[in-house]
């Protein structure tokens, strides 16, 4: 501790005066708890002083509260410090959130391509598509997710945030308008899957985040993964027959089934090849989202093992991969660094 800091602390301890208003100060300090402890250790006193100078002396009897704008600015600072502030640990968390955003958008884009191609093929053949809706709103959602994914991957993060937020809002509306039985089982994970990518995009791609333009070829996997499914759905295979292996396979050959397998394989590769902690944690988060998505399908129903069995197996695989990803990813994160204000030389 420097002489100046030691002197500051002594004076601060002398300050205690029972007649002074303390309520506003207490509330400001509570708001500052949004910030990491290391940051507060360095900044809290001067920030509280600045808050109170700005507010003036307000007696406790008037029940003073921090202004909403100030609270929002502290929340925004907390996001920035946690996801991109000083130190390698914050940078790793920031990269984790950005990867979660991109993986979530990739999944939604995959569903979007699958939905659009399926509808187009059905329309061209004048055949009904399973689950196809007559409303154009699902098409709007599909297109918005694809555009958001492409924009985020190519570095247009500003437009990507707007489009992803719109896509999330439309998808949530569609989920809310679904049938009651769907609302009880599949709606919460679907709502999570529609909310997390835009939120992660907003939080992770902040002003200080490194601008990265990913190559065009990385946009292809979500498209490539869905096309075989579309072709298979038009193949002359009796998917709806009672032939059990086919039924079991049909539950795996869906966009979320493919995504689950891809996530599990990527997780194993990440563990074996020593990928960075941010990649491990992002894959674990993506795996958790897919696990939540898959769980309602894995609910045991007597006599329908062929349907929930494969889903349960995939859930088990996901759990097996997620746990070591979280453990090793957390353990490999760089140590937390104390934030220091710039020192005079």
């Amino acid at each position: 501790m420097t002489a100046a800091e030691s002197s500051s602390t002594e004076h601060l301890e002398e300050r205690v005066d029972d007649s002074e208003p303390v309520l506003l100060e207490r509330r400001y300090r509570a708001a500052l708890r949004l910030l990491p402890a290391s940051y507060r250790a360095e900044r809290e006193e001067e920030m509280v002083a600045a808050f109170l100078e700005m507010s003036g002396d307000v007696p406790d009897e008037r029940g003073p509260r921090p202004r909403w704008g100030e609270l929002a600015s502290v929340a925004a600072l907390a996001v920035r410090v946690r996801l991109g502030g000083a130190g390698a640990r914050a940078a790793a968390w920031g990269e984790t959130v950005r990867l979660v955003a991109l993986l979530g958008l990739a999944f939604q884009a995959m569903l979007g391509v699958y939905g659009l191609v399926g509808r187009a093929a059905a329309a061209a053949a004048h055949l009904p598509t399973p689950g196809a809706a007559t409303s154009p709103i699902p098409v709007v959602a599909d297109v918005l997710w694809i555009v958001a994914f492409a924009a985020a991957m190519r570095g247009f993060t500003g437009p990507a945030k707007v489009v992803a937020a719109a896509a999330g809002a439309v998808s949530l509306l569609l989920i809310g308008a679904g049938p009651a039985v769907q609302l009880t089982l599949a709606a919460p994970p679907a709502a999570l899957m529609a909310s997390v990518p835009p939120l992660a995009l907003l939080a992770g791609f902040h002003a200080e985040a490194p601008a990265t333009v990913r190559p065009w070829r990385l946009l292809l996997p979500p498209v490539a993964a869905t096309l075989p499914l579309v072709l298979l759905s038009w193949a002359p295979v009796p998917w709806d027959s009672a032939f059990e292996p086919l039924l079991a396979l049909s539950s795996l050959l869906s966009p979320d089934g493919i995504a689950t397998v891809a996530c599990a394989v990527a997780g194993i590769v990440a563990l074996r090849r020593g990928w960075a902690p941010s990649a491990r944690l992002a894959l674990a988060a993506a795996g958790l989202l897919l696990l939540a998505w898959r769980l309602p399908m894995a609910w045991p129903v007597p006599g329908a093992e062929v349907l929930w069995g494969p889903a349960a197996v995939l859930c088990g695989v996901l759990v097996t991969v997620i746990v070591p990803l979280v453990v090793t990813g957390t353990r490999l994160l760089p140590p937390e660094r104390r934030a220091k204000p710039g020192r005079a030389s």
Partner: peptide, 26 residues
């Protein structure tokens, strides 16, 4: 806003454009 100010100060100090001059108790 105070939160925005300290975000700006963090960035400026990180880039070496501002630095701590002194501490006082007021």
């Amino acid at each position: 806003k105070i939160g925005s100010l300290y975000g700006v100060l963090d960035r400026l100090a990180g880039d070496g454009l501002v630095e701590l001059d002194r501490e006082e108790v007021w």
